[in-house]
Design a protein around this nucleic acid. Sequence first.
DNA 1: CGCATATTTCATCATGTGATGAAACTACTC
DNA 2: GAGTAGTTTCATCACATGATGAAATATGCG
Lengths: 200, 200
Amino acid sequence: MGVEARRGPRRGEDTRAAILEAARVEFARTGYAGTSLRAVARAAGVDPALVHHYFEGKDDLFAQSVVLVSLPGRPASLVSQVTEGPREEVGLRAVRTFLGVWEARRSSFEALLRSIVTSEEVSRAVREFLTQEIFGQVVAGLEPGLGPEERDLRAGLAAAAAMGLAMGRYVVRLPGVADADPETLVQRVGPVLQGYLLPR
Amino acid sequence: MGVEARRGPRRGEDTRAAILEAARVEFARTGYAGTSLRAVARAAGVDPALVHHYFEGKDDLFAQSVVLVSLPGRPASLVSQVTEGPREEVGLRAVRTFLGVWEARRSSFEALLRSIVTSEEVSRAVREFLTQEIFGQVVAGLEPGLGPEERDLRAGLAAAAAMGLAMGRYVVRLPGVADADPETLVQRVGPVLQGYLLPR
DNA sequence: CGCATATTTCATCATGTGATGAAACTACTC
DNA sequence: GAGTAGTTTCATCACATGATGAAATATGCG
C-alpha cells in the first residue's frame, strides 16, 4: 500500500510556480492567518519541506505570491493614467483603471484584500500605498494648492470608495456588484469618485 | 517563588463579562483565525480552561462576544429610520444612522469587519444582512416597482459604499476618514448614498 | 560512465492550539 | 459546622503548526 512518493526532480514541471499559485489561491480563500504552509503544500501536491526550500518562510511566501504580484510595478503610471485627460472624467478613468488592474490579477488581489484585516503590516502598506502613492498624488495633481486636511479627506474618501467596491465585488460578493460587468460599475461609481476628488 | 494562583471565585468581579470584553478586543485586533483562546484568557487574566467553562468553544465565544453584539436587534427599525423623512435626504439619514450604530459598538463592529474576510459564514451573513434586511428593504421602500437587477445593483452599490467607509475608518484607518468627525462624513458620503439609492 | 548539483522527500523538533477531566478553593445554605 | 453548588486552576491530551537537517533521487556535465 506504500505510496512510495519518489524523490528527486519532476521533469517538465515548474514546482516553484505551482507552489506560488497554490499559495495565491489559499491566501485568497482564508487570509494570512488562516492559511498553513501545509495546506499550500497539499494544494500544490508537494511536501511541506519543499515550501521551505523555495521560500524563507510563511511571510516570504506571502510576499512573493501576493504582495509582489498585486502591487502594480509603477504606481506613477497608474496615477498618470488617471490624471491625464479631461478633468470632468477623472472619476470614470479612476474606476476603469482600478477595475482593470483588479480583474487582471484577481486571485492575488483577493488574497491581499483578505490579509488587510489580518496583518497590521499589510494594512499599513495598503494605507500608505493608497493615500500617498495613489490618491494623494491624484488629488495633489488635480488641485495643487489644497490644505492638507482637505487633501487627506478627499483622498481618503476616494480610497474608501475604491476599497468598498473591491470588498463588495471580490470578498463579500454582493449581488449586483459581484456580477455586474465592469463598465456598468465604471458608469455608476465613476461619478462618485469624481465628486470626492473634485467637488462641486 | 510559586505564584500559587489560588482557585475559587473572585469576589465582586464578573469574570464572564471580562472574558467577553477581552475576546471582543482580541477578535477586533487579529480576526477570527488570528485569535487564540489562550490569548483571550491571557488578556482577561484568567486560565484558558475557564473560557471553556463559560463558552462551548471558540465559535460560541465569537458568536457571543461579536455577532450578538454588533448585529442590531431590529433591522426593521434601522430601515424605517432611513426611509422615514424627505426623499432627497435618504442618503444623509443612511450614513448618519450607520455611523451612529458603528461608533456605539465600535470594538465588536471592528471584530466583525475583520472576520468578514476570514469566515465564509460571517461573510455570507453580512452579505445577506446588508442586501436583504437593510439596503434591499430601503430600495424597495423607496421605489417599489423596480426590476430585480436594478434593485440589486443599487442596493449592492450602497452596501459597498457603506463597507468602504467602515473599512477605511475602522480597519485601514485612512487619514482624513479615520479622524474625521462623523458629521463631516455624513455631509460628504450622504450624497453618494443618495445617488446610489435614488439616481437622477 | 562518474561525479556534482539541484530537487524532492522523510523524520523529527519545539511550540501552540482547542479541548477535557479532575482537583482545589470560595461562598452559600441548612 | 457540614454539605453543596459554583468558580477557578492544574495537568494533560491529541493534533497542527512552522521549521530544520539529512537522506534519496534525478538531471546535466565532464
